[in-house]
Every structure is written in C-alpha cells, then in structure tokens.
C-alpha cells in the first residue's frame, strides 16, 4: 500500500492548496490556491520544498493525521493552532520528522484563522488544470474535488528529510492585524461621496458567511450613486463588491470570475495575509492607498518573506547544512511566492 498521511479527523475546512490555477479565468475557472501564499511558501521552506508545492490549508479547526510512511517531515505556518505530536505539544514554524504511526493533532487556533501544513517532497496527487488546489464548487483538485475527509490517505512523494529539522526563530514569525488597505475602484464612481466616506471610516464585521469564496461583512450601508447593477465584468482576488443592501462583500481565491455588482475597491495583495486570518465576528477597517503605494507594499511583503526564509535555523541551535539550504530553493521560492500567483 502507498505511503501517506492518513486523515483521522478532517477539521472543518481542510483542503489541499498550492499556488493556484493560472490562465483559466477567461474560461470561468477560479484561481483558487492558498489564501496566504507567503505562509504556504514558509511552511514549504521549513520542509525543503519549492514555495508553491501543495500543502494542507486548514481553518478554525485543524485535522488529525497519522503517518503511514517510514518518515515524513512536516511543518505548520500560520495561525496559532494548538498542535500535538503523539500528545506532546509542539510548535508551529518548526519542522518535525514523523515516523510510522506517529499522530499529529491540530486543534483550534488561539488567534487567527488559517494555517498551512507542508510535507517534505509534497503530495503525489495529480494536478487538474495545472494545479492540485481544491475548488469545491466545481470539484476541481484535491483528492476528488472535495475537502479532506476522515479516512483519506494523502500519498507522499516521500524524499528523505535532509539534515536536522529547521525552525523559524520567534522574532521572525509573522504577526497579523492592522487595517486592510485597498485601492479604490474599479467602480468607485458608482458610489456617493458619503458612501465612500462610510466605507473608509466605519468598522465592518465579518459575518458567519465567510469562506474561501468571499467574506460577507456587516456594518453601515454604503450608498450607491445610481443603482447597483452594472454589466458583468471580471473580478480579481480581493475585489470588494457592494450589492444592493450596501454591505461589502470581499471576493477571494475561490470567487466567481465575473460579476454584476459595482466594486468599490480592491484589497492590496500585501494584505491578503491579514485578511486570511480575520475570523467571523472580528472587525476590520479599510484604508485607501494608491496603486504605487500598493505595489511598494507588495515589494515590502516580498522582502519580509525573503528575510524569513533566510532566517531558518536548525531546531535546537547550530547552523543549517548547505544541503538543506540548497534543497530550499530559496531564490526560486521567493520569485514564485509572489502574491500574484494567488489570483491566477
């Protein structure tokens, strides 16, 4: 029987995600992909994978897994999920070598919402339309187009772990929070001045209707200037639509590719990370920036990832051996970790 990771309990919204599909938006196929490509890249670096290898994305309640291979190196990046290896608490941002029969249990996060579990060598799962990212609405990707379920066996490519398992020092671990920065438009002129002011000043709360397709927000209604129907056009990751009721809806990785409500603004790619960690019931505020500012924020995020990838050290101290560093493919990882992949 194939070696793999067995899902004993799936959690609530656990899916395989890589950097997503590119080139199919014009045919109505969502880009999908990890909701935070930088954290997927970081989890992958911890186990020596390329940045865009598929990992397990989890939200709110993680899975319980049993290792059914001789050895499997794993690492988690993201929200502060409770994490136990054979009942002993272990850390995120640190790689562990699971042995056959070892049980990894992920509970709920104390803060944040999502995390990514990478395994050394990645999963031996055939891509569909160029990606193994799961898109449940169209049953694309993953094992069978659905979230992971109890009993599923995730087959491993299973290379031997290289060197000692690394960790990311606490000082380099990401922190989440802050306002969500947006570029106004493409249809900001569909709203009144007052409506734009409301959008940029009022707090908005994530409702329970929040998933990989989009987040419905609750808060003061935003006034349209002249109705709320436009002729459908394209939607990107982070587009903020305002339907007739005036409450914003942020469209995300698994969104429809086109839509007919005016889009007041677009979340900057650098803040996809923040957005991916906001829980239903939590409040966000929007802040307007220019395209130039948004592009320089994206550069800052890229630099921050580069610094983190270079900061990995062996768990327990000492230097990483050169074999491990080469296996991380740091340069390639930085390039393909670009946020743009998340919409493709």
């Amino acid at each position: 029987m194939a070696d793999g990771l067995r899902i004993v309990a799936p959690g609530v919204a656990t899916t395989l995600q890589d950097a997503g599909r590119r080139g199919y938006l014009r045919f109505g196929i969502s880009g999908s992909g990890a909701m935070d490509l930088d954290l997927l890249a970081l989890a992958n670096a911890l186990v020596g994978n390329p940045a865009d290898a598929a990992g397990i994305e989890m939200a709110m309640l993680g899975p319980t897994l049993v290792c059914e291979a001789e050895v499997c190196r794993v690492a988690l990046a993201g929200a502060s999920f409770a994490m136990a290896l054979n009942g002993r608490a272990v850390d995120p941002y640190t790689a562990y070598d699971l042995r056959r029969g070892d049980r990894l249990n992920l509970g709920a996060p104390s803060r944040g919402l999502r995390a990514w579990l990478a395994v050394a060598g990645g999963f031996a799962v055939a891509p569909m339309l160029g990606s193994v990212s799961t898109h449940t609405r169209t049953r694309l990707g993953g094992l069978d187009g659905t979230p992971l379920a109890a009993g599923d066996l995730l087959p491993l490519r299973a290379p031997e772990p290289v060197g000692r398992p690394p960790t990311l020092p606490h000082v380099h671990r990401p922190r989440f929070g802050g306002s969500i920065r947006v570029v106004l438009g493409p249809q900001a002129d569909s709203f009144t001045e007052e409506g734009l002011r409301t959008f940029l000043s009022a707090p908005y709360t994530l409702t329970a209707r929040a998933d990989r397709m989009g987040c419905h927000l609750d808060g003061p209604p935003i006034a349209h200037a002249d109705g709320f129907n436009i002729v459908s056009d394209g939607i990107v990751n982070g587009s903020i639509q305002v339907p007739g009721h005036g409450r914003p809806l942020i469209l995300l990785a698994d969104r429809h590719t086109t839509g007919g409500y005016p889009k007041i603004a677009t979340v900057v790619s650098a803040d996809f990370s923040r957005l991916a960690q906001v829980r239903p019931g939590e409040t966000i505020r929007f802040e307007s920036v220019t395209v130039d500012e948004a592009q320089s924020l994206a550069q800052d995020a890229k630099s921050a990832l580069t610094v983190r990838l270079a900061a990995l050290v062996p768990a327990g101290g000492g230097d990483l051996d050169s074999g491990f560093l080469l296996s991380c493919n740091l340069i390639g990882g930085v390039v393909s970790a670009n946020h743009i992949g998340s919409v493709a």
């Binding site: 590119r22 938006l25 002729v231 056009d233 394209g234 086109t258 395209v291 743009i340």
Partner: peptide, 21 residues
C-alpha cells in the same frame, strides 16, 4: 499574466515587477 474578456471590458492581470503599470 492573464486576461479576461467580458461584455464590455478586458480584465488584465499583470506582474508589476516584469511589466510596470
């Protein structure tokens, strides 16, 4: 990166590092 032709507009996705706005 990608384009999406629609009724009345063309959505263009680009990488500003390789193709400045």
């Amino acid at each position: 990166l990608e384009t999406v032709p629609t009724y009345r507009s063309l959505l263009v996705l680009y990488d500003p590092d390789l193709l400045p706005r």
